[in-house]
């Protein structure tokens, strides 16, 4: 039971929303579609749900041609960013909707529907909330009801559109764990859209990174992080720094010192090297860019530094607390040495 998306292209009147998008979701996989706004991720989700039609390409699930199926016949559980709960129905009625709306011959008995609703209320830990209206729930509770409503139809795939977008940070983290647990319990193939790289890396089995309607890279969270294919992926997945240097024989020479490079493209000669905040060392006398300390911020177990080079360029670095760095204060002059840099085409 896998989802196959092949060569999907979708153009709106003014711009190409998706061009030649191909990926697959394994049975039971938790897949994230990650990208900035305008990358086409929501368009892609709507195509999967059948709410929009692609210009070309194919979408199949378990051998079924999805494009030949109407949205209501695809049996897809969709959770909307706004939750889209039916405001005039109680929580229980909301969850039961997908079952009660079926034509009489396919509809489960009243008792079966009731039992299903109760088991779902239990799953989302809202047993006593069945008789409430959506307006009487908190954001996180609404989110859970929306999920239960989508699960009620025993969906073949679960689609989530920015599932945590409208929640505050604390609730978000909580729900993330909970959603992952629900997914592992139900085992339903899940595709979710997010612009939050931390969320995608934290939650998904695999991540599809989209940029301007094209897939930049598909991979497991750790793969993407350790082995980004493009500069965009590298930059999108976390804080990063840039410096100009010369690529020569697997290292980048910054004039005076050189650093081993992971080369993903580009040719020998002048390049832009990129490096993560924690792939750095600062010292008072060692090699590196001469920089001035702008600020020293505690970041949990680490120390975060903001540094400024001679040309005004700003670097962000992270270090473990140790004798060297703990004494640093704003205004100090130090040398910044990247320990590992990436070079992209």
């Amino acid at each position: 039971m896998s989802l196959t998306v092949s060569n999907i292209t979708k153009t709106f009147t003014k711009f190409a929303a998706l061009s030649d998008v191909t990926f697959e979701a394994e049975p039971g996989e938790f897949l994230a579609l990650l990208g900035p706004s305008g990358s086409g991720k929501t368009t892609l989700l709507r195509l999967l749900a059948g709410l929009d039609v692609p210009d070309s390409g194919a979408i199949a699930f378990d051998g079924d041609n999805f494009l030949a199926l109407n949205a209501r016949d695809r049996r897809i559980g969709m959770v909307f960013q706004s939750y889209a709960l039916f405001r005039h129905m109680t929580v229980a009625e909301n969850i039961a909707f997908g079952l009660t709306v079926r034509p009489a011959k396919d509809r489960p008995s009243k008792a079966d529907i009731k039992a299903k609703v109760e088991s779902l209320l239990k799953l989302i830990q809202l047993e006593d909330y069945g008789k409430r209206f959506p307006a009487q729930l908190s954001g996180g509770q609404r989110q859970r009801v929306a999920l239960a409503r989508a699960l009620a139809i025993s969906p073949r795939i679960l689609l989530l559109d920015e599932p945590f977008g409208a929640l505050d940070a604390l609730v978000r983290k909580d729900l993330r764990r909970w959603l992952r647990r629900i997914h592992d319990e139900t085992g339903v193939t899940t595709v979710f859209v997010t612009h939050d790289q931390e969320e995608a890396l934290d939650l998904a089995d695999r991540v599809v990174v989209l940029k301007e309607g094209r897939i930049e890279q598909i991979g497991k969270p750790l793969e993407l992080y350790r082995d980004p294919a493009t500069a965009f992926v590298f930059e999108f997945l976390g804080a990063n720094n840039q410096a100009s240097g010369t690529l020569r024989g697997g290292s980048v020479d910054f004039g005076g010192f050189s650093v081993p490079a992971i080369v993903k493209g580009g040719s020998e000669g002048a390049v832009t090297a990129r490096f993560r905040p924690f792939d750095t060392q600062v010292s008072r006398s060692g090699p590196g860019f001469p920089v001035k300390v702008l600020s020293v911020l505690p970041a949990g177990a680490n120390l975060r530094l903001e540094l400024q080079g001679d040309g005004g360029e700003v670097y962000e670095t992270q270090h473990a607390h140790d004798a060297d760095t703990s004494e640093l204060k704003a205004g100090d002059t130090v040398n910044l040495l990247p320990t590992k840099v990436y070079v992209f085409a």
Binding site: A49, G50, L51, A71, R72, D73, R74, R75, I76, G77, M78, F80, S82, A84, L85, F86, R87, F97, G98, V101, R102, R149, A150, I153
Partner: peptide, 17 residues
């Protein structure tokens, strides 16, 4: 907005429903 109607559609509801 149309969110609720779209949600109903994905849950299997027909036009008049």
């Amino acid at each position: 907005g149309t969110d609720e109607e779209v949600a109903a559609r994905t849950l299997g509801a027909r036009g008049w429903d």
